[in-house]
Design a protein around this nucleic acid. Structure first.
Length: 839
RNA sequence: GGGCCGUUGGCGCAGUUGGUAGCGCACUUGCAUGACGCGCAAGGGGUCGGGGGUUCGAGUCCCUCACGGCCCACCA
């Protein structure tokens, strides 16, 4: 066996060298001839390509890659595709800012359109097809940047399996999945109050809400009571007074019981509204009696629905007070007051109406500033409003018990992450809203009949055959209709909405496995083995994927979920954008080397937030260099001691080191099987350092031939076996340096080599391994070193005589390695004395 | 309001059936040895957040409190 040992070991250039060779050699190519039970399939998180590249990506994707590499070496054929999440609002927003354009769906396509060279102050209006073109153009660049990073990070993905959430396969899967839910009555459309973002002009789902603390003010308002006595209520939304449809109090509240069933009148508008009782009214809040408006918050929606109240909406989809009053107000000045509010933003209207109340004398005291939580769209920057609109939903609410059961079936790593899933499922309060009034997304594959009198029949959608998918209802025509019939009485109209990005990414296992398009592949990879992801999207991505797989396949989409933590800055805050821009992932990879950065990432325990620590990267770099140097030393000893022809390890010390290695293999294997890559690394690293500092030093002289040929052969054979095992144990973490060493010595890639087998290590020894031999020999050598340090002499200094006092069993162990200890310590004479304690 | 996680030397962490506290960084001192000065060797430094309990014995189990972080909740 040839041994190419680099003369001047260096980590520089390893990345580009091996990235190219792995690609050329198809090292990570998925072999689709393997049956399902031989496959290990990973449902890779498709990164949002319009977002920033940050160190958090490097962190969590490294974790998954270590698992992928371990499983590959264990003999599983690893299905490890990459996906790009380019669908949806983040891309639209980035395109708007980057090119300075705005989508206007009423415009028609301009084939010659070019975006302005610099984004103008006033955005240019473009048609929807032009806008979508720009989205594709920009995401192509973004995807290239991500791919460069992933390749540089050494992710062992099969790049021939890459998908994008807006590509044709994803559109087909999304539409097919939707149509099947529709056919089974699990998807439905409904006109109902929905959370609405006034800036993005789209409906928003429960899973995308953020609570944000912000300043507000309680305004105490006087309503006209039935007996002439005023009724005072507190509100933070006085601008919704014209939308008030009732007052509500708790049924058991003695203060207001006499009012329930009576009618009061609103200030300024003089509108009569009933007083109702409901359990959700909190006697502790405000005055204990509240106004119900359509709609100020989700509690209003509950009250409105359960108490059977009318709708008086006042806020338009753009967040302004509508032009026409919701009713003709009966109070004398009602219409005049409305004129003061119409067209104003919510904020302007709030200020104005407070002033009007003050003037009319219906304001009690002054507004009292408070800080309260307000619901926002997680990507938005104005509070959500609630508007009534037609939307598509998936029936999740009545199946929560099924989803909880699926959560129990799933193996969570770490296990406590299951609690987040359960609390989310238990807290569900509405069905899953999947439609968005946006442009860059998968269209709903539906049209609706238009009646002769012009009304749209939403209850009987026109559905395409699955073989037609994907369809775009804005250009494609339903079967049996003429294109001329579009938007005409007696004709049809296309559904204008697109699916939310989660409606597509909830199908990533199906998309990656080419469900419906390639049944052979799908059968080999589904259900998958692993879903790796971050904890903040358990309620979105993880939950929704479980939902879709449960409905479509009646099973979990994968057996394991590995939840990674975040990268945090030294102040324990999630890495900020500004920080992320200073420390770029590619910069770190270039500065410390990929293996070093991976070492830092792999040191972060599963699920645990981890500090960005360049110190750990330096340690990783040193480890990689140490691997290179130790390997160089072992291989430069020349002979492999007959490893190739079955020679045996005879020296007790050598057998001991193989025993330690066998134990390590057991520990690392168990850790990896439990998805604890960090534990596997920690133990491998610890043994490696003691291997270098103790065992290597102890056998160095013997390996050079200081005790004869046979003794040298045993040492060399043990060193070779140990190195082979250690390189393979490190390979999932340090893929570049291990491959560099392996390639100069072994056939094929270390990443396709079999994972070390503990029994194989044990069998190589000619006799039983006595761990005590190595332990005592290292301890005695340590004492000799201590004495030399105390004497301030070189480690190379000769020692005339050493006396070891220790327990009898330990002295016996020492005997079999005494020649190595003497040679390593340069001891002329070594004597032993039995004693109770070591000294 | 409910829940989850964390609190171990200056910093970052390990400690998986309870048995007299470990690792790395940093720090101190020494060493040019035939793999490595991006090295090697030695060393100083902690009453394991507070309190209570179980036990012969608790960082490790139970209760409780505090602090930090996160998740969830119909927060007028």
């Amino acid at each position: 066996m040839s041994r190419n040992v680099p003369e001047k070991p260096s980590l520089d250039g390893l990345e580009s060298k091996w990235i190219a060779r792995w690609e050329a050699g198809g090292t990570y190519r998925f072999d689709r001839s393997v049956a399902r039970d031989g496959v290990y399939a990973i449902d890779t998180p498709p990164p949002t390509v319009s977002g920033s590249l940050h160190i958090g990506h490097v962190f969590s994707y490294t974790h998954t890659d270590t698992i992928a590499r371990f499983q590959r070496m264990r003999g599983r054929e690893v299905f490890y595709p990459m996906g790009w999440d380019d669908n949806g609002l983040p891309t639209e927003r980035r395109v708007q800012n980057y090119f300075g354009v705005r989508c206007d769906p009423s415009l028609s396509y301009d084939p010659g359109f070019q975006p302005p060279p610099e984004p103008p102050r006033q955005p240019v209006s473009v048609s929807r097809p032009n806008f979508v073109e720009l989205c594709h153009r920009l995401t192509a660049d973004d995807e290239k940047a991500f791919e460069d990073l992933w390749r540089h990070l050494g992710l062992s993905v099969d790049w021939t399996m890459t998908y994008a959430t807006i590509d044709e396969g994803s559109q087909r899967a999304s539409q097919r999945g939707f149509l099947r839910l529709l056919a089974r009555g699990l998807a439905y459309s409904s006109e109902a109050p929905t959370l609405w973002d006034v800036d993005f002009q789209t409906a928003v789902a429960q899973a995308e809400l953020d609570d944000r603390e912000q300043p507000g003010a309680y305004v105490r308002v006087r309503f006209g009571g039935p007996d002439g006595q005023p009724v005072e209520i507190d509100t933070t939304r006085p601008e919704l007074l014209p939308a008030c449809v009732a007052l509500v109090t708790h049924p058991d509240d003695p203060r207001y019981r006499h009012l329930v069933g009576s009618t009061v009148t609103t200030p300024l508008f003089g509108e009569p509204v009933p007083v109702k009782a409901h359990e959700l009214a909190d006697p502790e809040k405000g005055t204990g009696i509240a106004m119900i408006c359509t709609f100020g918050d989700v509690t209003d929606v509950v009250w409105w629905r359960e108490l059977g109240l009318p709708v008086r909406s006042v806020i338009e989809r753009d967040g302004r007070i509508r032009d026409a009053a919701p009713v003709s107000f009966r109070g004398g000045n009602g219409q005049d007051h409305w004129q003061e509010l119409r067209g104003k933003t919510v904020k302007q209207a709030r200020e104005r109406i407070t002033e009007l109340l003050r003037q009319s004398g219906d304001l009690v005291g002054e507004p009292r500033p408070i800080t309260h939580a307000v619901k926002y769209y997680e990507k938005g920057n104005r509070p959500l409003e609630i508007v009534t609109s037609r939307q598509w939903f998936i029936r999740t609410l009545e199946h929560t018990d099924d989803f909880l059961r699926r959560g129990e079936e799933l193996a969570w790593h770490p296990p406590y992450m299951r609690a987040r899933y359960e609390s989310w499922v238990q807290g569900l309060n509405s069905d899953w809203l999947i439609s968005r009034q946006r442009f860059f997304g998968v269209p709903f594959p539906l049209w609706y009949p238009v009646a002769e009198e012009g009304s749209v029949d939403y209850d009987h959608p026109l559905v395409p055959d699955e073989s037609r998918l994907p369809v775009d209802p804005s250009t494609d025509v339903p079967d049996g209709y003429d294109p001329e019939a579009r938007d005409r009485p007696g004709g049809f109209t296309g559904d204008p909405d697109v699916m939310d990005t989660w409606a597509t990414s909830s199908l990533t296992p199906q998309i990656a496995g080419r469900w419906g398009d390639d049944p052979d592949l799908f059968g080999r990879v589904f259900p998958m083995d692993l879903r790796p992801q971050a904890h903040e999207i358990i309620r979105t991505w993880l939950f929704s994927t479980v939902v879709r797989s449960h409905f479509e396949h009646d099973r979990l989409p994968w057996g394991h979920a590995a939840i990674s933590g975040w990268v945090v800055d030294p102040d324990r805050k999630k890495m900020s954008k500004s920080k992320g821009n200073v420390v770029t992932p590619m910069g770190l990879l270039e500065q410390y080397g990929t293996d070093a950065v991976r070492y830092w990432a792999a040191s972060g325990r599963p699920g645990v937030d981890t500090v960005l620590d360049e110190g750990q990267m330096r340690v990783g770099r040193r480890l990689a260099i140490k691997v290179l140097n130790a390997s160089r030393f072992v291989l430069s000893l020349g002979s492999d001691g007959g490893a190739a022809d079955g020679g045996q390890v005879t020296a007790a010390l050598d057998r001991a080191v193989l025993g330690r290695l066998a134990d390590l293999v057991d520990t690392a294997t168990t850790a990896f099987e439990g998805y604890d890559y960090a534990r596997a690394l920690e133990h491998t690293e610890a043994l490696f350092w003691s291997f270098c500092n103790d065992y290597l030093e102890l056998v160095k002289g013997r390996a050079y031939g200081g005790q004869g040929e046979e003794a040298a052969a045993s040492a060399n054979r043990a060193l070779t076996l140990a190195l082979s095992s250690l390189l393979r144990l490190f390979a999932p973490f340090l893929p570049f340096v291990t491959e560099e060493v392996w390639s100069g010595w072994q056939e094929g890639s270390v990443h396709r080599a079999p994972w070390p087998d503990a029994d194989e290590r044990r069998a190589a020894a000619a006799g039983p391994a006595d761990a005590l031999v190595l332990e005592v020999a290292a301890a005695v050598l340590g004492e000799i070193r201590k004495a030399k340090t105390a004497a301030r002499t070189s480690m190379r200094a000769d020692v005339a005589r050493v006396v070891v006092r220790d327990r009898a069993d330990r002295l016996v162990a020492l005997t079999s390695a005494v020649a190595d200890v003497r040679e390593a310590g340069r001891v002329a004479d070594l004597a032993t004395e039995e004693a109770d304690t070591f000294s």
